[in-house]
Design a binder for these strands. Sequence first.
DNA 1: CGGACACTTGACAATCCTCAAGATTTGTGG
DNA 2: CCACAAATCTTGAGGATTGTCAAGTGTCCG
Lengths: 253, 253
Amino acid sequence: MPATHTQSRFSSKLSSQCQNCSLSALCLPIALADEDINRLDQIIERKRPLKKGEVLFHQGQPFNSVFAVRTGTLKTFNITSSGEEQITGFYCPSELVGLSGIDDNTYPISAKALETTTVCEIPFSHLENLSSQIPSLKHQVFKVMSRKIGDDQQMMVLLGKKNADEKVASFLLNLSNRFKKRGYSATSFRLSMSRGEVGNYLGLAVETVSRVITRFQKNELIQVDGKEISIIDLPEMQKLVGVAPDCGKIAQF
Amino acid sequence: MPATHTQSRFSSKLSSQCQNCSLSALCLPIALADEDINRLDQIIERKRPLKKGEVLFHQGQPFNSVFAVRTGTLKTFNITSSGEEQITGFYCPSELVGLSGIDDNTYPISAKALETTTVCEIPFSHLENLSSQIPSLKHQVFKVMSRKIGDDQQMMVLLGKKNADEKVASFLLNLSNRFKKRGYSATSFRLSMSRGEVGNYLGLAVETVSRVITRFQKNELIQVDGKEISIIDLPEMQKLVGVAPDCGKIAQF
DNA sequence: CGGACACTTGACAATCCTCAAGATTTGTGG
DNA sequence: CCACAAATCTTGAGGATTGTCAAGTGTCCG
């Protein structure tokens, strides 16, 4: 019997424990001992769901917490001097938002819900304290931040070097991989962001995004029904973004 | 007398101690007590200088250390599937390279010297251990990584939304700010990278970079002599990149 | 001194943006 | 549940920015 010491001491608030969360394998608790997960659990606050369009934190606001998305999607953005919105990222369940606020205790970006979205709030000072006591937790935080740095650099390459087709294909494949990782279909999913938001993120005009998607459909690379996307010819899409077909690691942002 | 316990136990290798390093105010040791600086000092290895073109670490190589630039400049880049180089960053003295390797214990990029360059090697496992014992050091590492995330996101905005003029102006002002921070002239400096490398980094063709620089000179925004750059009309340059003139925080990458 | 490399400049072409109009979807109130 | 308004999305035409190609100049280093 493998259940020797896995019996939790905390049987209350079942649905909102890290141990019972289906995302824990992707989020922070990975590789933590049960008792450590419980300690992490205690510093985390589950918030009421955000409705579509609601703001989680505003650019310029004092930084206190990072947030893990549980359900739904967030976008982060900042407002430029000319007043327009600049989207810097989309966040799916299990992903952490707000890490860039640590630097000077202020969020340099805003975060807004693209649909009904629930998040776990992780007060950073608590996380920092706890990470001193749990080395593997500290390592996890370093890893998450490190991965974010690497991903952002891939995104820089995409923005700087790729054409419209490659940008849109990369975007779709990146989403595909993220869905796959958390057990959803890699080939069929729903875009929670508008074409305009995709274009804003990718550095393209809305019209260009629309045209590329239409062309992909005509060429039978994908099938589109509004925001529903099905990837039909995955190998061809991968060729588009420049991935060696047998290469395990997919290009991602 | 302020020298109560500041007398170092390590009087040897004077020139290579964090305490005596002019960069310590910008690098990791900031806000550490003297004794803690000494502990940090002991895990840091000073390496022989890299000659121009020498590689500090290769993409794909096992990750062991992060590196602080002491003198000179590094570029980081990766090689795309089509075989071309993609520059993801330039690193000046006091800046940390290699943080993106933490995630899966492999450097996802290569780092190469643009000129004769010296670095301090900081074995990450040691830094991680030490940071458990020194909370302010741990906080420093989090801050450095957080700042990198924020800076990279600004760079994404630059690549996605700005035109050639704005890109080059942002690049020059960013360098200007970084030089200023470490006590050098903010208006007169030497580019250690080629026009081609600037273009690669900014997502522009060499010819475009050259043309923009020539035009900036004709419009008396800057003065150029090969790799020597003088910023003549700083306010106008700032207007170009969209910075409110009295806004303390300059747009940077 | 010569060769390689970096930089500049011009002409042309391609990609992508802007503007505009129409179609479709979404949201809201009756 | 329907109807209408407001967004969002699509598609076309034309134009601007930037990339590509080509040639010439300048610079560095053996």
